[in-house]
Simulated scan of single mutants.
Amino acid sequence: MKKFKIIVYPVVCILMVFLTSFQLNKKNTIVEIKGEQFFVNGKPTYEGRVWKGNKIEGLLINSRMVQGTFDDLNPETRKLFAYPDTKKWDADRNTKEFVTAMEEWKKYGLNSFTLNLQGGSPTGYGNKEWVNSAFHPDGKLRPDYMKRLKKILDKADQLEMVVMLGIFYFGQDQNLDDEKAVINAVKNTVNWILKKGYQNVLIEVNNESDNKAYDHGILKAERVHELIDMVKDMKHNGKRLLVSTSFNGNTVPKPNVVKSSDYILIHGNGVSTPEKLEALIHNTRKVEGYRPIPVVINEDDHYDFDKEKNNFTTAVENYVSWGLFDFRRDGEGYEEGYQSVPVDWGINSERKKGFFNLVREITGVGK
């Protein structure tokens, strides 16, 4: 009997550790693609919703919130991002306020947002000496960034929201040593997500792959499909992540990317009229390799939300998901813009209110 207890006890302990680990990694939200539609937990998004004769079911209505994990690792420029009340920058405060705001976004009908592990320009456009990267120069993950990312992904999973997670940004990829480091960063990121059990994450390999500022060849439009294919081949417990990458505003994606991607990303920056946006969408669906998969705009800095026709309404009329890109203009206050650091993550400027009110109207959520 004593020998039996000696054998059983470690087996029970191992089983308990396994079950505990399983519970910690068990997630609530699963995103899938079926044809041109996004599904969450087995149902198309906005199930049955039609707005002004346009099908909304299956779309991702999103916003560019890429600074959710932002930090500046350069002590010389860090002071540029000080909060107006404390006069200092605080990365943990930024993420905490981001997570707090997510429930309000969801109440208006937003079901998705874009993050980026190297952020975006913290001044809206342009890059200088600041260093915002979730990766060490060799591509290893920085634990503090991933801790902040986990808080956001956990909340998104709880709220049944989809996260489009960008890995690289053209203002920061130079902080990786070489192509090997880029590949390491992709592998480390994807493995981290898969092993944590997140199934509500879509990968955007890099923001605007055709931007000439990229330093590493594998991140440029001609070769970025190599990384897309690599992500598709990575699996954990038989599961993989859906993946794509984006292009500059008013740019039709290249065939190599369209062929490899699970969904197509285009940007509305530089698309000054709804008619031009409609042409961009039409031309995107004519690219070699296109088949019925979702087309998503996850960055557009054109608003006019009070008008009958704008880029947002034009996108949904053409069955394309649409995403806001909002930044603080010169002379505007702290409450403006979701990309300018420090960020006020609330819905408390006229532009933000205009966007979210239209989200509510189109999606029918909370009405």
Rank of each mutant, 00 (worst) to 15 (best):
M1D: 11
K2P: 00
F4Y: 07
V8Q: 04
V8D: 05
C13D: 02
F18E: 09
S21H: 15
V31F: 13
K34W: 11
E36S: 14
R49S: 11
N54W: 06
I61G: 11
R64I: 03
G68C: 04
F70D: 01
D71L: 09
L73I: 04
T77W: 02
K79G: 12
K79D: 12
D85M: 04
K87Y: 14
K88P: 05
A91Y: 03
F98K: 13
W105T: 11
W105P: 10
K106P: 07
S112L: 13
N116L: 09
P122D: 01
S133I: 04
A134L: 09
D138W: 07
K151S: 14
A156T: 13
Q158N: 15
L159R: 11
L159K: 11
L159P: 10
V163S: 15
G166I: 08
D173C: 04
D173S: 08
Q174H: 00
N175S: 00
L176N: 05
D177W: 00
V182S: 09
I183M: 14
A185C: 12
V190P: 08
W192R: 07
L194G: 08
L194C: 07
K196R: 15
N200L: 14
S209F: 02
D210R: 03
D210E: 02
D210T: 03
N211G: 04
K220R: 12
A221I: 08
A221L: 02
A221G: 02
V224T: 07
E226A: 08
V231E: 06
S244I: 04
T245C: 06
S246Q: 04
N248K: 08
T251A: 02
V252P: 00
P255W: 02
N256I: 04
K259T: 10
I264P: 05
L265V: 11
G268R: 06
G268K: 07
V271Q: 03
P274A: 11
P274M: 09
E278V: 01
Y290T: 05
I297A: 05
E299Q: 11
D301F: 07
V316H: 06
V316Y: 11
G323T: 03
D330N: 09
Y338L: 06
V343N: 05
I347S: 03
N348Q: 00
S349G: 01
R351I: 13
R351M: 12
K353G: 01
G354V: 05
F355C: 08
F356T: 03
L358V: 11
I362R: 13
